[in-house]
Simulated scan of single mutants.
Amino acid sequence: MSKYSIESFVNETKENPLERDYFELEKPQLLEINLNNQSVWTKRGSMVGYVGKINFERQGIMSGGIGNFLKKAISGEGSKLMKAEGTGRLYIADAGKRVRILYLNNESVCVNGNDVLAHENSIKSNITMLKSIAGALSGGLFQVKLSGTGHIAITTHGDPITLLVTPDAPVFTDPNATVAWSGNLSPDLKTNVSFKSLMGRGSGEEFQMKFSGNGWVLIQPYEEVYSVDK
């Protein structure tokens, strides 16, 4: 049999039937979610295929209560989540970005809203807002805090790196390259005016996120520009 035959192609690219975890990386850029009369939240537009009986429901703008309503309306987050419910295999992806699965054990993490791909129904999500105009200008104003016990999936452009934060060594990052950080950290936003003056024009580096305390920060080798849904 030729290595370029259709049969060879199918054998090389087909799913692995032995992998049936709830959240499973089918490929580095493709997440498989195995539903057994369950529901899961996914990023709207991320579904690329499914097998079985799965229904999809767009998240209402009022979900999460009035406290989240205004932030969702401003940020467009209210239109970005979709509920998938039923039994079957669901495949989701986001623009070829790499997928990372994390299991939270009564823990919390903060993730840039654009990088949340999916989370179990048992995970509580809350949109958090960095109270600085610098955040709005750099596109990093809205994040999602995910808390509880269960699986979550986040996405990155390329292979990320985790930087450890200690009391004697704070970490500074570009908001557009910052993907996630430990839930106990509350970053500050600072403006590097001298850098802006040196360059003579606006640049992402003029706005920085400062992480202090004990924890970690995940950054990607890419400065992502975030858009607001209309």
Score class of each variant (00 low, 15 high):
Lys3Arg: 11
Tyr4Trp: 09
Ile6Arg: 14
Glu7Leu: 11
Asn11Ala: 13
Glu12Trp: 03
Glu12Val: 00
Glu12Lys: 08
Lys14Thr: 06
Glu15Val: 12
Leu18Ile: 03
Glu19Phe: 04
Asp21Leu: 05
Asp21Met: 05
Phe23Gly: 07
Glu26Val: 01
Pro28Asn: 05
Leu30Ser: 02
Leu31Lys: 06
Leu35Asn: 06
Gln38Asn: 08
Val40Pro: 02
Val40His: 03
Thr42Trp: 10
Arg44Gly: 12
Gly45Thr: 08
Gly45Ser: 13
Tyr50Glu: 12
Tyr50His: 15
Gly52Phe: 10
Ile54Glu: 04
Gly60Arg: 10
Ile61Ser: 11
Ile61Glu: 10
Gly64Leu: 04
Gly65Ser: 09
Ile66Gly: 02
Gly67Arg: 11
Gly67Thr: 10
Leu70Glu: 05
Lys71Cys: 03
Lys72Arg: 05
Ala73Ile: 05
Ser75Val: 09
Leu81Gly: 02
Lys83Glu: 09
Lys83Asp: 01
Ala84Tyr: 05
Tyr91Thr: 06
Gly96Asn: 01
Lys97Asn: 13
Arg98Val: 07
Arg98Phe: 09
Arg98Thr: 09
Arg98Ile: 12
Val99Met: 13
Val99Ile: 15
Arg100Pro: 01
Leu102Lys: 11
Leu102His: 06
Asn105His: 02
Asn106Phe: 01
Val111Ser: 05
Asn114Thr: 11
Val116Glu: 00
His119Leu: 09
Glu120Pro: 01
Ile123Gly: 02
Ile123Trp: 11
Lys124Tyr: 08
Lys124Leu: 13
Asn126Cys: 04
Ile127Met: 15
Ile127Trp: 08
Thr128Gly: 14
Met129Val: 14
Ala134Glu: 11
Gly135Ser: 14
Ala136Cys: 04
Leu137Asp: 05
Leu137Asn: 08
Ser138Gln: 11
Gly139Ser: 08
Gly140Ile: 13
Phe142Cys: 00
Gln143Met: 14
Gln143Lys: 10
Val144Cys: 15
Lys145Tyr: 04
Lys145Asn: 15
Leu146Ala: 12
Ser147Trp: 14
Thr149His: 06
His151Pro: 13
Thr155Asn: 08
Asp159Leu: 12
Asp159Val: 12
Thr162His: 03
Leu164His: 07
Ala169Met: 00
Ala169Pro: 00
Thr173Phe: 07
Asn176Glu: 10
Asn184His: 03
Ser186Gly: 03
Ser186Cys: 07
Thr191Cys: 15
Ser194Pro: 08
Ser194Val: 15
Arg201Ile: 00
Ser203Pro: 01
Glu206Tyr: 04
Glu206Thr: 04
Phe207Tyr: 15
Phe207Arg: 02
Ile219Met: 12
Gln220Cys: 15
Val225Pro: 00
Val225Gly: 00
Val228Ser: 09
Lys230Ile: 07
